[in-house]
Each structure stands twice: as structure tokens, then as C-alpha cells.
Design a protein around this nucleic acid. Structure first.
Lengths: 223, 223
DNA sequence: GTTTCAACATACCAATCAGTATGCAGCCAA
DNA sequence: TTGGCTGCATACTGATTGGTATGTTGAAAC
């Protein structure tokens, strides 16, 4: 595999953007790691492979991260942050619950499809494979990730609850109803493989189709 | 972990039941392996751990299997065989497509829930993590598993196609429509954790709820 | 110009683990 | 009773890999 050219993105002037923590080199590592986690899984991905994908060596990775698990948790954080940034504004909007949940689902799927590596790692229960190896050491980070996911799913559950009380969604516990709802959407991370000839239009149609399926699943039939 | 007592099942008289291949000790290994694959993932599961779970040692495992990948493929085969045995008869029955697809989905979910370890390993794209390590050596076994899964999914696609032509299901390619359909059902292998206080009734209600959600997703709305 | 330090690269270690080689007990046939 | 064979257990090896310890370099600070 030929070494990748340096990213040469507009990397200027975000040095101390955040608390001095989340940097540009860290994001590059997270991206490379997410791609490998997606293809090989967490265990099978070696730090050397992550470094090689960036055209560097292990030293660089361990300069920015103290362990592989820490990289993994950053992948999770990034994924949840992007989803929340996209979906939360829609959830806070007004309007009928049916339209809001549809727009939220659509944004959710679009994010999955356009950021597949990170989102695939995040969305599947891959975490269990990590915690079991070091259940004690990373308990705090695990709780944080679980908290982020719970808060994100709560956005949907609240809108679903609204729709139930309005009588337009089937009358079941929102927490339970959200499971197959997310299933219909998130399953795309399991079966979908990006093709060469796939256009942006194809992705849009796919997103629309999955969204409509999921919404039909919660809509009460109106005879 | 205390060593498990010997299974002491009715293990008599199935010695040469099949072609002399699939035996009772092999099934015990497959079961132990499936449970560990589910909890830890393929890579993180060591042969020693599989043996320890059976109260034996590595020698026993390697007496019946030549590699870890071979065990993995047997888990897949067993899972697909059970599903197909349950669902195929329903698919071959007569009756309206809506009722048939509902019964098939129900049988599918029930099988997932009652055989979680094997089915979870089978249903998720865990396979990719295996092939990438030895893509050439296990290509044949991989093709077999993929073939089994394709044939199984085709059972659903055919009934869906019937329903589309009858005008009761939404008019989309069955192959595509089946993706979120399976997603709504299969996602249960990701979020569901068996609880101590879970009764058989709870499982039944869960299966019913997921099935109804999935069927609503393909049903054309009748205004 | 030299001190300092961030940002890496290189070399190395210890642990894990798939797979192999070998030992060994019991059973069955001759 | 012996020879062979099945069904394991035990001992061992080579390869991988997470993590550490130690160089090295370029540039800013003074």
C-alpha cells in the first residue's frame, strides 16, 4: 500500500480551538482508525495498521493517544456528536410529530451513509468487544458513550411519545417502539457497501426509502 | 469459572446419522464457541476459552476441528439451517402473502430470541472480520454461507414480490424492501439482553411487536 | 547559537494465542 | 496380551501485537 500524501487540508488556526484536547492530528487518527475498525473489527485492527494508513508509524499514534481503546472511544464520541448536531435542531422544531420524526430519520440515515466508517463502528454493539477486555479501566468512558447514545435516542423517543399522545402513532412504549425503528434505519450499516457507480441520487433514494419504511412502522393505520 | 458438568444429553445413536461429519461433540463445541463469539467477538475468542467453557482443553477442540475459522463456519451453518427449517415450510404454504410474511417474520424473530448466541453471530456481518484475515483459504466456505443466506432471504423476497403484485405491499424492488424489513427484526440481536426476570410471555410480546412493525413497513397504506 | 520542546520515528519487550507435536489411557478385535 | 485406534490432555513454538523506552529533528524562544 503506497503511503498516503499528507492531507493538506486547511489545518491552520484551530490549534487551541477547543480545550487543547481535540486536535487536527487526532481527527486524522480517528478517521483512519474508524475505517479499519469498520473493515476488520476492533481487535483485528493493529496500531501499526492505523499508522501505516496515515503514512506514518506507531510513534505518532501513541503521541496523541495513550491506548487503542482511547482512539475507539473518540470514534464513538465523534460519531455521536455529528448525529446529535444534525438531528437535535430538527427535534426542537415545532410542527406535527409525524413530519418531525420523518425529517429526523432522514437526517439520521443520511449521516450514516455519508459517514459510514465512523457510524458503522458507533451504531453496532461493537463496544461490548472492547469493554469485556478492560471492563474496569474504561468504565467511565463507556458510561459517557452510553449517555450520549441514550440522550440521542431520547430525542426520537420524545417525538414518538408526542405522536402517540396525538393518536397518530401506534400505542406502545416509545422506548420499545424506537428499537425496530432504529433497526430499519441502522441495518443499512450492515448490508450496504459503497459501490463505484453509486451516485448521490442513489443515496438520496435509499435514504428516502428507509425513512418511509421506518415511519410506516410507527404510524397507526387509518382505516 | 467452575468446569461445567458433562452434557449427558441423549447422545446415543446419532453416530453415523449424517455423512460421518456433524457429530455430537462438534455441536457442543459449536455451542460453546457461539456463546463466546457473541460476547467477545471472533478475534477475542481463544480456542483455550472455548475449551475451558466445555471443561476440557485445546486438544479436544483441535481433535474435531482443524481451525477456529472452521468452527465459525459451522456456527453459521447451524444458524442458517435452523432458520431455514422453521421458515421454509411457512413460505411454501398457501394463503394470502400478508399472512404468510407475517408468520415467517414471527418464526424468524422467535428463532433469533431463543437461539441468541448462534443467531447473533450469524445475523451480523461478523463474517467480514473473518474473511479479511484469510480471504483465500476460506473462500469456498464463505461462498457456501453466503449462498445459504441468499436462499433464505429469497424465501422472504418471493412472498414480498407476491404481495406487491397483489397490490397489498408498497411497490418497490423486493430485494430492497427486504433490507429494512430484516433490519427491524434482526436489530433485536444488537439491543436485546436476556434478563433474569424475562418470562416466555415477554418474549412472545416482543416477537409480536417486532413482527407487526416490520409488516406495517411493507404494507401499502389503504386510505 | 544554544536551549528547549513538540512531534514524531525506531527499537524493544512481554504477553497472548493459533496451531502442532507428542503423550497416554481406555477399549475393542484377533 | 497385544496391537491398534479413538479421544482426548499436555507441552511447545512461532508469529502477532499493545505498549514502552529511547532516539532524532526541526523550529521557536531568548
Amino acid at each position: 500500500m503506497p503511503p498516503m500524501p499528507p492531507p493538506s487540508e486547511p489545518e491552520a488556526a484551530n490549534k487551541a480551538a477547543r480545550g487543547g484536547d481535540s486536535d487536527a492530528p487526532r481527527q486524522e487518527i480517528v478517521k483512519a482508525a474508524a475505517e479499519l475498525f469498520m473493515d476488520l473489527g476492533y481487535r483485528a485492527t493493529s496500531i501499526d495498521a492505523i499508522a501505516e494508513r496515515m503514512g506514518s508509524t506507531k510513534g505518532r499514534v501513541y503521541h496523541w493517544y495513550r491506548s487503542k481503546a482511547e482512539i475507539y472511544f473518540d470514534v464513538q464520541r465523534s460519531a455521536m456528536r455529528r448525529l446529535t448536531e444534525l438531528v437535535e435542531p430538527i427535534a426542537r422544531e415545532g410542527g406535527p410529530p409525524q413530519q418531525r420524526i420523518e425529517r429526523m430519520a432522514r437526517a439520521h440515515v443520511d449521516c450514516l451513509l455519508h459517514d459510514l466508517p465512523m457510524q458503522k463502528v458507533s451504531v453496532q454493539g461493537l463496544e461490548t468487544h472492547v469493554i469485556t477486555s478492560d471492563s474496569v479501566r474504561h468504565a467511565k468512558a463507556m458510561r459517557e458513550i452510553v449517555g450520549l447514545r441514550d440522550a440521542y435516542e431520547a430525542l426520537f423517543c420524545e417525538v414518538i411519545d408526542e405522536g402517540i399522545r396525538a393518536g397518530v402513532f401506534v400505542d406502545l412504549p416509545p422506548r420499545l417502539l424506537s428499537k425496530p425503528f432504529f433497526g430499519a434505519l441502522n441495518w443499512v450499516t450492515i448490508w450496504y457497501r459503497p459501490r463505484r457507480l453509486q451516485t448521490e441520487d442513489d443515496l438520496q433514494m435509499l435514504g428516502e426509502m428507509l425513512t418511509e419504511f421506518a415511519v410506516r412502522g410507527i404510524l397507526k393505520e387509518r382505516n
